[in-house]
Each structure stands twice: as structure tokens, then as C-alpha cells.
Design a protein around this nucleic acid. Structure first.
Lengths: 264, 264
DNA sequence: CGCCTGTTTGATCTACCTCAACTGCTGTGG
DNA sequence: CCACAGCAGTTGAGGTAGATCAAACAGGCG
């Protein structure tokens, strides 16, 4: 059930957009057969190993595209090396900044990653002709913006405990949605990140992440099956800890076509 | 020269989109005469007083549109009342979430504000037909997303001192761009926010904002002309304090259409 | 087996928060 | 014209959440 398993070799993989596994969620999900055929001609796949750089902050963006498989983290780095994660992207999420030449952040493969890529110039050219593509991209960017704003609240106002709870809730919702399971106690989630990456996500240090996790464990809210798998024993209490407004908490999964890398 | 001065009464104001002062920067800036005429027919103006709610978090979004004049803050609130600002919008910025029924944040007028609004349903309908409108909206949302990500770094990793320096740099660049002046020492900026709003912007308390401001003053980096006007005496040092990567420093608040010259 | 890397746990330190008092401005009313 | 609320901002003293520094621990792998 792990989603970080090995990918079939590139050669063996289907090359046809029409039966791509992210077809119905990615940036191309509103494209008709004709439009898709055009994308099909200009797309290409590329695989990345964990830790490998996909885009470098401050470097020219020459290609952009969708995550087909794996997890990608977007970071920004301050002059003295402090780093903050600013995006965490999963299958079907779109990476790259159209309409800009220089990447404002770097993108690093967290797990093994397969990307479906386009040359930037080609993509922008197609984007200007295919309104369905542009419309879907807008939808996705709006979702990401909502996501970024929730993240800002987490970083600006939440305590370490609340941040961890929020993080686990986000992963839980995502996991339930992917498995088409209701969100219920006992749910088992995979954490595709090291403690360091979690710390960069939450604006904390690894030590604080670790301490808060053991605190949640000692309170019986979670069970840690191993380093990368956690079982949530009391979702209601976890949700209460996040301090999120319960009204808004679940909006984001139910949106337009339903998908952002982060929330829900 | 203050931009918070009184607005001419609504009645007296020009109603024609074609000679609107935000025409060349707002969401309609790529619309041709025909498209503009259509927008002209469905738009309406509304004024708001400082402190007045434009959109309420969790409430249905019935209209959305552009800031014509004044400053609007977007907030999110946690259950126990802690608030984080997640957006600060000026003339020509677009407020509202198309393609979503419920507002994920509230929008409050900071100064006197004039909005150019559309009914959401009407706007979405036009949006689906006018690709120039959709394209411009995408551009703007991408810029905002970049902005939000920088903001996340500020909230997640910067010290109080760095946050204040970043805030002042952002206002300085904005001010220079608006006045079509180069960014240079001695620049005078207007701060349209109370200390409380600055604190909500920066994820700090009012006391910390105040202390950091006096620290910058005592170091001779800034001169406080009055509560709402600051003169920056040493931009280079202020920029250095922000810890931002100098390469990327100027990308964002100058958006794709409006490019800024820069400081090192 | 020992090495390397990621994680946990412990002890201390500090930046920022909290609580509280004080300042200075602005408007109001006698 | 002064008195005096009322509010935004500043300053001070002390407390604390989370950072930092350091050491122990666990699992994978040659």
C-alpha cells in the first residue's frame, strides 16, 4: 500500500496521455481528445531520485509539468541557510511557474519521482491556445493559494503542538481521500518525509517535531508503527488541537475538482 | 500625496471602465474594447469605511472584484481568536475566490475603500467566455502565490527584526514603483496599517513590532516622521537585514506586467 | 561488527510573549 | 482654553515555548 514503492522503468511505461493515471486530476484533466493529443506530442517523462533537484531556486525554468508519481518539496532558502518548505506536491500536482523565467524556489524530489514535463516555451504557447488547460491551471493555482494561506496561519500563529496536529490532519484527509475511505479513527497514514523535512514544513526544528510527536504518542492520540507510518487513534481530539475553525476545516477537499497537494 | 485621502462621492465618479485609473493593472487589463464593454455593463462600485467587513470568513461569496482605491486586509482567525493576516491588497488587486462558494478568509477595509464589484455568478460566466480575463486572473493569482510563499518564509523562519525589515522593504518597493521613483535612500513610505495590523501581518505581537521599530530607529536605519510615515535612511542595510536572497529579492511585488528596477 | 544517518531525549539558553504601567495624541465638553 | 477621557503606541519586567547544544539510541549496510 505504500506509495513510495519502485516505479516501473521509464521505457516500459505507457506513453499515451489518454490512459495516464493522473489524467482526471492533473492540469490536463479538462482537455478534450484533440487538445490532449497535442499535449501528448510535446510531453516527456523524467525520473528523479530522492534528494535530487528538479528545479533550482534562482535558476532559469526550462521545463515544467505534473508529478506523475512520488512526492516533491518546494523550498525557499535564506542567505544564511535557514530553509522553509513552501509547497509539498503529490501525484497530479503541477510544478513550475508559467509566465516567469526564473524559479522563485527550488523543487526537490522527496521520494522517487516521475514527472510528466513540457518545455516551458512550448507549454506557454499551448496554454495561450487551449483555454481548457488555462482554466484548469487557474483552478489549481487558486486551490494552492488557499492552501498557502492556511499554511501561513499555521506558521504565523500556531504552537508546535497545533502545527503537528494540523500536519497529521492534512495527511489523514489526503490519505482517506486517496483510498476513498471515510475519515475515521484508526486510520493509518504514511509520512513520506524525514523529521527534517517535517520541520521545514512546519517552521520548527527536528527536535521540537520529535518531542511533539512523542507527546501525542504518550497522550494516546497516535501510535507510531514505524518511523514512516502513524496510526491516528482519535481524530476528533486531533482536529480539536489544530484550532482550525471547524466550519472551514473541510472545505478544501470538497472543492472544484478536488485537489491540492496539501490541504485535505 | 497620501493615498488614504477622501474619495470623491460615488455619484460623481466616472463610471466608464475605459478611463478607470486601474484599467491597465487590474484583472481587466488585457480585455479588449468589446470585452471591456461587457464588464462595464455588469460592474458596480461600492465604498467601505475603515474597519468595515467586505467579505466574512465562512460566509457565502456573492460578489468579487477589484480594489479601486484604498487598502484591504485578508485575515484568517483561529478558534480562540488568534488572527493572521494572509493578504494585503491595494488598488488594482483582485479580491474574492472565483470558483468557490464560501470565503476562506475575511476581507476588512483598512482605509476608506472603493471596490469595483461583480456578482460572482455573472463574473464566472464572463470568465468562462473571455479568455483574456481568465489569462490575466491566472497571472495575478500566480503572482499572489509567489507572494504568499515569500510570506511563508517570513512567518516560518525569520526573526522579528528580519520581519520588520522585510515589511519595510516591501512597502518601499511598492511606494517607489507607484511614484515611478527609483528605490533610494531617504524614500518616504506611508504605512497604512495600525501596529496591531502590522503585528497580524508579521505573525508578531504589537509590543514586539513597536520594539523592533524603535530598534531600527535607534540604529539610524529609519526616521519616524509620524505614526504613519517612515523615512528609510539606509536601504542597503535594511535589505541586508531581511536575509532574503538578493537574486530573487524583487521578483514578486513587481508583477509580470509591472517590472521593477532593483536594489542589491 | 562498526559505521553512518536519522531520531529521540536531556539540559540550558534566549527571543519573543505576556502582563502592566506609562506616554502622547485627539476629540469632547464644560 | 483647559480638563480629561479614550485610544494607539511605547517601554519595562518577568515568564515560557521553542531553539540550541550535546549525548544517547536505533536501524540499515558494507
Amino acid at each position: 500500500m505504500d506509495r513510495t514503492s519502485v516505479l516501473p522503468p521509464l521505457r516500459a511505461v505507457q506513453q499515451r496521455c489518454s490512459d495516464c493515471k493522473i489524467r482526471h486530476r492533473a492540469v490536463c484533466s479538462l482537455s478534450g481528445p484533440q487538445e490532449l493529443a497535442e499535449l501528448d506530442r510535446i510531453k516527456f517523462y523524467r525520473d528523479f531520485d530522492p534528494g535530487q533537484e528538479i528545479v533550482g531556486e534562482g535558476e532559469p525554468i526550462d521545463s515544467l509539468g505534473s508529478v506523475v508519481d512520488g512526492v516533491v518539496a518546494l523550498h525557499k532558502t535564506l542567505e544564511d541557510g535557514r530553509r522553509q518548505m513552501v509547497g509539498l506536491m503529490f501525484a497530479s500536482d503541477f510544478i513550475g511557474r508559467p509566465l516567469r523565467a526564473i524559479a522563485p524556489y527550488d523543487a526537490i524530489a522527496v521520494t522517487k519521482v516521475r514527472m510528466c514535463l513540457f518545455r516551458r516555451s512550448k507549454f506557454e504557447e499551448v496554454l495561450s491556445r487551449q483555454s481548457s488547460l488555462e482554466h484548469r491551471l487557474l483552478e489549481m493555482m487558486l486551490d494552492e493559494l488557499d492552501c498557502a494561506r492556511d499554511w501561513m496561519v499555521l506558521l504565523g500563529r500556531k504552537t508546535a503542538q497545533e502545527r503537528l496536529a494540523s500536519f497529521l490532519m492534512i495527511l489523514s484527509r489526503r490519505s482517506a481521500r486517496l483510498d476513498k475511505q471515510p475519515l475515521m479513527d484508526g486510520i493509518r497514514i504514511e509520512i513520506p518525509l524525514t523529521r527534517e523535512a517535517i520541520a521545514e514544513y512546519l517552521g520548527l526544528t527536528i527536535e521540537t517535531v520529535s518531542r511533539q510527536l512523542t507527546k501525542l504518542r504518550k497522550e494516546g492520540l497516535i501510535v507510531m508503527e514505524d518511523q514512516r507510518h502513524i496510526r491516528i487513534m482519535n481524530l476528533a481530539r486531533l482536529a480539536a488541537i489544530t484550532q482550525d475553525d471547524p466550519r472551514a476545516a473541510d472545505e478544501y477537499d470538497g472543492n472544484s475538482t478536488g485537489n491540492t497537494g496539501l490541504i485535505g
